[in-house]
Design a protein around this nucleic acid. Structure first.
Lengths: 169, 169
DNA sequence: TGGCAATTGTTGAAGTTTCAATATTTTCGC
DNA sequence: GCGAAAATATTGAAACTTCAACAATTGCCA
């Protein structure tokens, strides 16, 4: 019985090894950390975000505030919930960042007349002017990436990221 | 003089517009937030990291701790600096996470005999056993991604991310 | 209609990360 | 070999994020 099990185990190992090396990657438990998609995304995000951060630092503005300004730039108000989704922040964090931006007169709150639970956020003139300067800095970062990485790769990567995000929802 | 500058400005606008619409994407200042590479990376990272986090939560372990265990699994000691680079954390943060893991007997510190400024980190037996359970959870997440997103896209995305990271250094 | 559940945003406490300063050890020039 | 500069890890304070509870308003349905 032990022997039979051992033989059967060997057979299945051989079969799996053969099949997997032809059809697909073997599902090894020992995949290095650096081959996990989650890790590669974290690493790339960290690096690119750092670059952007250091550009925007010329205006003394954190990345999150740039995102907020950019979303509000069109002049249509957004509720805190909509805004939080758009800028990838959870609600309490957004509330506190917005508090600071209100102090800096970059954005302002208006009670939504249609639904008085809601607050509509708007961008001030000052906020819009700052936003445009920040946009330039951000564009120059993307240009720098495209220089080193190539236009084709950049567009292909964007396309794949969009479809990954789609497929995850 | 004013007129000449104006004409020259118009010319250069036309030239740039013509050239850019043939050669590359026009560098509009009004690119939506959702088309910036930095944003797409942040969004994808957030989503995939959330998924992984919720899987690893079955063992009550944060993603960072899994990364640390995985790096140390091979039994070769790593200094705090090496480990911090490998797991994408800065030094003080790593020190504090490691403190917790030492309390939980998952890892341990050894003074490096070759260089007494350094501390070598190792994974305990307990840590290795936990790491293997975590690996299974992580593998099942990747399998789930591949199911929805496709094998080809996944591999292509990984390849592009790796080369982006390369090009950024 | 009246009241209960759901939605929206904020708050305060707890937890986490980051920055600057520190202690220790090594390296290197002289 | 000595002393200044660099490298390594940790610490404590400050800043930030997150969690859970709360207040206000709306939607629902019986």
């Amino acid at each position: 019985m032990h022997i039979e099990r051992a033989i059967s185990a060997v057979h299945s190992l051989i079969r799996v090894k053969t099949k997997s090396s032809i059809v697909a990657k073997p599902p090894s438990q020992n995949t290095p950390l650096t081959e996990h998609l989650a890790y590669l995304l974290a690493q790339a995000n960290r690096e690119i975000n750092r670059q952007l951060e250091s550009r925007l630092a010329k205006e003394g503005v954190p990345v999150e505030q740039w995102r907020i300004l950019k979303v509000l730039f069109d002049g249509n108000g957004r509720s805190m919930g909509e805004l939080a989704d758009a800028v990838l922040l959870n609600h309490p964090t957004l509330t506190k960042i917005v508090d600071r931006m209100v102090s800096d007169a970059l954005v302002y709150r208006v009670q939504d007349p249609k639904d008085r639970r809601k607050v509509l956020m708007f961008c001030s003139e000052r906020g819009k002017i700052l936003c445009q300067r920040l946009n330039s800095l951000a564009m120059s970062q993307e240009a720098h990436i495209v220089e080193n990485y190539g236009n084709k790769s950049t567009n292909e990567l964007k396309r794949l990221l969009e479809s990954l995000i789609d497929s995850a929802n």
